[in-house]
Design a protein around this nucleic acid. Structure first.
Lengths: 214, 214
DNA sequence: CTTATACCCGACTATTCATTCTGTCAAATA
DNA sequence: TATTTGACAGAATGAATAGTCGGGTATAAG
């Protein structure tokens, strides 16, 4: 009872999480207040206090010093920033990892890694339908398998036997939900019985570096 | 000539990078000023301006809105936050990744991933010499192969034929450099000809989540 | 020689930002 | 019913933070 999170507290936690994900730093009270849709920052103060008490969030004394704690990630169903990499190694014996030079042999005292989790994988994307989201023909993307999706996220969708990466949009007027290509050349894709969202595209490989998808 | 970074600019860039890594949010001008070892924040203003011009850094108008850009990571020789995961999949065919349920078969239009880079690997740690750094007996840690190291980083070191994970300390008084176990039960380890630093411990697996090592 | 650039000092200003206080209201709880 | 809890309003306050102005010095470039 006491440890459970309320819907409103979860709202704020997600607002903070999403803000950090997209901007790279935490929001101000004012920004949180606006996203919550209230006019007094007292709401933010109260909710933050609860999130702190319940160990979902850590807050420093300075400006914009917010850190989502592991418990917070768990309740949101999101992996911490550095988390998903474990998944990509799932089922992959460490011997398969090529280490350069003197690391051909592993140091003694260490053993093989095991399966960590199976909710993330990497795919190569073909086509130009997402160029405005920074995903170009041939790029590698990192996909996290999920159940819940939020409007604006780039998702991997299954349409019948075909698979595609598009931006997922959910709005309060028709057509309510659809898939939006990030290229004006292409049309929106409506949902049918055959449309199924599989995962969220977290990251894209650019010039040898993984970058966030927005 | 014009695009090159100066030592002082690189100092600040690293200060910002390290701060975000360890704290989770960007520093204030005051904190940067202090770390730079100067008494006027005008220095910070000037250096930040240069880092912005050279596209190593992005800066918003609000408080503490700093983001290290890909060019910045490159010049520091650091992977972006989400980067290293690619490495763990190096040489690991995507078929080896076990996907649950209907993802036993991969969607058409996607191919195997190739080797991405070989500078990161995962090891299991035995012993209690780093418990105060949050690394317990049997934990998995993520190691990034590096050449340069900074005082305070947790490193994987090779001591003769043996390998060990300890905190690397470099100070301006004897013994200058040594390895520090994070457990009072153990003694510091001096450097010898046989001591060699191999990589930096970036992350540790805790309750199913990867967490930063401090 | 002259100019520009990198780096820094010191003080000052403007404003963002967090905090605090007093209260309201509805829903949950005892 | 009485009490507590969650959520929010409105306003006032003060500290934290960024930004500005006017210099200085040393080094490199033209």
């Amino acid at each position: 009872m006491k440890k459970q999170i309320t819907p409103r507290q979860k709202d704020l936690l997600r607002i903070i999480y999403n803000f950090i994900q997209s901007d790279g730093f935490p929001p101000t009270f004012e920004q949180m207040r606006e996203k919550l849709g209230v006019v007094s920052n007292q709401s933010v103060v109260d909710l933050l206090e609860k999130l702190k008490q319940k160990r979902f969030l850590k807050k420093g004394t300075g400006a914009r010093e917010l850190v989502v704690l592991p418990l917070g990630y768990q309740i949101l169903g999101e992996p911490p920033l550095a988390a998903f990499l474990g998944a990509t190694a799932a089922g992959c014996p460490i011997e398969a990892v090529e280490i350069s030079g003197e690391w051909q042999t592993l140091p003694s005292g260490f053993e093989k890694i095991e399966k960590l989790n199976d909710e993330v994988f990497i795919l190569r994307i073909y086509g130009d339908s997402m160029i405005n989201a920074g995903i170009d023909d041939g790029d590698l993307v990192l996909v996290q398998v999920k159940e819940e999706f939020y409007s604006g996220e780039v998702v991997l969708a299954k349409v019948g036997d075909d698979s595609t990466v598009k931006r997922f949009i959910s709005q309060d007027k028709p057509p309510y939900i659809f898939l939006k290509p990030e290229n004006p050349k292409y049309q929106h894709i409506s949902f049918t019985d055959e449309t199924k969202l599989v995962g969220k595209v977290i990251s894209v490989l650019k010039n040898g570096y993984w970058q966030q998808v927005k």
